[in-house]
């Protein structure tokens, strides 16, 4: 049993300090839980690890990320979009110039990575599964001291709003890539399985972005009264049900980004053929 005590700041009118600590009951054990509480953090840690390993490998490949006119297609991997270096196979805008010689994915991945790292759902996921703070509810924290997100570096989690602004632009870019994928044989409109995959990718990334807690707050949640802001209230009301599924969209969009990259990679390398619908 612990015997620490903490004296609270004395409220007005109280003559004696109130002891808030005292001796705790129950045994000094990490947890009394008897269920398989470790299963969820293990599954989360495994899922995130698989994505991180794959995305890192894919980002450093600097090849097979674009299926271009030679195959009558226009598919750009979401891990490389927008492609901003001059050495890109498909250049969005040569912002980085010819001096950028490493993979163009490295230049852009920092932004979606920042959005996901500071995302309220992913914070829960990795604080539990990797940092053990706590590993599960009513299971002891893995660390002796705890200051939460009040100090550097974790105070930077407050930059989620900034990454949301950039993430919204990236969601738009992915939708543009999906529209650009409707390319036909002679420059007209056409559609292949890759187009469908890119469209689903754009939708899932958009759903993940607009269901974000920061988005919900900015669109209307920050208001004290909805009554005088009818449009913002309408937007908040529509985003709120999506926000309830933010975790689902986080996982689906994460998985689909990797799957889209893998599909384009396999088509670009000539390992599989992209079936044409029209």
């Amino acid at each position: 049993m612990s015997a620490q005590s903490v004296t609270a700041a004395q409220p007005a009118g109280h003559e004696t300090p109130v002891i808030l600590g005292g001796v705790r009951g129950g045994p000094n054990k990490k947890t009394l839980r008897t269920d398989r509480w470790w299963l969820q953090p293990l599954a989360t840690a495994s899922g995130l690890l698989v994505f991180v390993v794959y995305a890192t490998w894919a980002a450093f490949q600097n090849a097979n990320y674009y299926v271009g006119p030679a195959m009558h297609r226009d598919y750009l991997s979401p891990l490389y979009s927008p492609c901003l270096a001059q050495n890109c196979k498909y250049v969005w805008g040569p912002v980085l110039g010819s001096w950028w010689s490493i993979s163009p994915a490295i230049a852009v991945l920092i932004f979606p990575l920042g959005l996901r790292l500071t995302c309220y759902y992913y914070r829960k996921a990795y604080y539990r599964s990797y940092w053990g703070s706590p590993p599960a509810c009513a299971v002891a924290d893995a660390h002796r001291s705890y200051t939460g997100e009040t100090r550097f570096p974790l105070i930077l989690q407050n930059a989620h709003r900034w990454f949301f602004y950039i993430g919204a632009i990236f969601a738009g870019i992915n939708i543009f890539d999906a529209v650009a994928a409707f390319r036909g044989f002679s420059g007209g409109i056409g559609m292949g399985l890759g187009t469908l995959i890119l469209c689903i990718n754009g939708v899932l990334l958009s759903l993940y972005t607009i269901s974000c807690h920061s988005c919900r707050h900015l669109l209307g949640g920050q208001l004290r009264s909805f009554h005088t802001h009818r449009i913002r209230y309408w937007l908040w009301d529509k985003i709120t049900p999506l926000n309830k599924h933010h975790m689902l969209f986080a996982w689906l969009s994460l998985f689909w980004v990797a799957f889209t990259d893998l599909y384009i990679r396999l088509v670009a390398a000539g390992w599989i053929h992209d079936p044409r619908f029209f």
Partner: peptide
């Protein structure tokens, strides 16, 4: 201490 909360959602779970 709002910044101390690391939103692991145990409060919601219980």
């Amino acid at each position: 201490g709002l910044g101390m909360c690391n939103i692991t959602k145990c409060c919601t779970e219980v």
